[in-house]
C-alpha cells in the first residue's frame, strides 16, 4: 500500500470513529454487555463457592466457564453492532455521502472493519473486566493467571471475529432490519436446527463446525478442560458433554474462515450494489 493510500485509509477510519461516537448505539449495546458479564459471572463465582463449601468439595473454576459463555453473548451484541456499520448507512441514506467522500468502496469497508472491529474488541475487554469483577464478588476462582488470560484472549478473538462477520453480513444484505434479523435468527434457530438434523441423521459432531459451534469451541475449550481436569463431582461432569468437542484452535480457524467468507461476500456485494 502506498503512503497516500495509507493516509486516505487513516482519514476514513477517523471518519468512522466520529460517526460511531456521535450516536448512542455504541454505548447502548455496551450496557447489556457489561451487565450480563457482571451478573452471569457473579452467578458462576457463587456456584463455585457453593460447590467448594460442600463436604469434600474442591475449588473449581466455574467462573472461567461462565466467562467463556458470556463471551458468546457479547459476540452477539458485537455482531449486531457490526451489522449496523454498513446497513444503518443504507437505512439513513448516509451511504451516498460516505461513498462520495471515500476513495473507493473497498477502502470504506476496510475502515469500517478497523473502526467497528476495535469497538467490538472494547466490548470484549469490558466483558473480561466486568466478568472478573462479578466472579470476584461471587467468590469464585478464575484459575491461574495464564489460563484466565487464555480464556479472555480467546473470547476477545471470538468477539472481534463476530464483529467483522457482522460487518460482512450488513454489507452483503444492505437492509438494516434484514441484516440484524438474519444474524439473530441464524444463531437462535437455523444453526441449532441444522445441528439437530445432522445429529438425527447420525452425523453427530457436525454442529461443532458450524459458526456457533466453532465460536463456542474457541471461547470455552480451555475453561472446560480446566474444569474437567479438576476434581469435578460426577453429577456435574455429565453436563460437560454439551460443550463442543473440537479444540479451541480448530474453532478459531473455522470462525476465521466464516468471517473471511462473509466479509468477502459483503465486499463484493458492496462494490457491485447500485446506490439509488
Amino acid at each position: 500500500m502506498t503512503v497516500l493510500a495509507q493516509l486516505i485509509l487513516a482519514q476514513l477510519i477517523l471518519a468512522e470513529y466520529r460517526k460511531i461516537f456521535s450516536t448512542k448505539l455504541w454505548w447502548g449495546l455496551l450496557i447489556p454487555v457489561a451487565l450480563t458479564a457482571l451478573l452471569f459471572n457473579l452467578a458462576g463465582g457463587g456456584f463455585a463457592n457453593l460447590v467448594a463449601d460442600r463436604p469434600g468439595g474442591a475449588e473449581l473454576p466455574f467462573a472461567l466457564v461462565t466467562l467463556g459463555l458470556t463471551m458468546s453473548f457479547t459476540a452477539t451484541f458485537a455482531a449486531i453492532f457490526g451489522a449496523l456499520a454498513v446497513s444503518s448507512e443504507h437505512r439513513h441514506r448516509t451511504i451516498t455521502t460516505t461513498l462520495l467522500t471515500g476513495s473507493s468502496r473497498q477502502a470504506v469497508l476496510g475502515a469500517k472493519l478497523v473502526a467497528h472491529g476495535s469497538i467490538g474488541l472494547l466490548y470484549a475487554v469490558v466483558t473480561v473486566l466486568f466478568g472478573a469483577l462479578g466472579a470476584g464478588i461471587g467468590g469464585g476462582s478464575l484459575s491461574d493467571p495464564g489460563t484466565f488470560l487464555a480464556v479472555a484472549g480467546h473470547g476477545c478473538l471470538a468477539v472481534l471475529l463476530w464483529t467483522m462477520l457482522g460487518i460482512g453480513v450488513g454489507s452483503l444484505i444492505g437492509n438494516q432490519v434484514a441484516a440484524v434479523l438474519t444474524l439473530v435468527l441464524y444463531s437462535l434457530i437455523v444453526d441449532p436446527l441444522i445441528g439437530g438434523f445432522l445429529a438425527a441423521a447420525d452425523i453427530p459432531g457436525v454442529a461443532d463446525y458450524l459458526p456457533d459451534g466453532a465460536s463456542a469451541a474457541l471461547t470455552t475449550d480451555i475453561a472446560i478442560r480446566q474444569l474437567a481436569g479438576g476434581d469435578l463431582p460426577a453429577e456435574l461432569g455429565v453436563g460437560l458433554s454439551a460443550f463442543p468437542s473440537v479444540p479451541w484452535w480448530v474453532g478459531g480457524l473455522l470462525l476465521t474462515g466464516y468471517t473471511v467468507l462473509l466479509v468477502g461476500l459483503g465486499g463484493v456485494a458492496g462494490v457491485r450494489r447500485d446506490v439509488t
Binding site: 482519514q11 476514513l12 477517523l14 471518519a15 468512522e16 466520529r18 460517526k19 456521535s22 450516536t23 448512542k24 444503518s88 439513513h92 441514506r93 448516509t94 451516498t96 455521502t97 460516505t98 467522500t101 471515500g102 439509488t276
Partner: peptide, 21 residues
C-alpha cells in the same frame, strides 16, 4: 436521496465527513 442520521448533530455529521476528506 442523500440523508443524515437523525440523531447526529449537524456539526458531528460534517466533522465525520471532514475527516474522511
Amino acid at each position: 436521496a442523500q440523508g443524515f442520521h437523525p440523531a447526529r448533530q449537524a456539526r458531528s455529521h460534517l466533522s465525520a465527513y471532514a475527516a474522511a476528506i
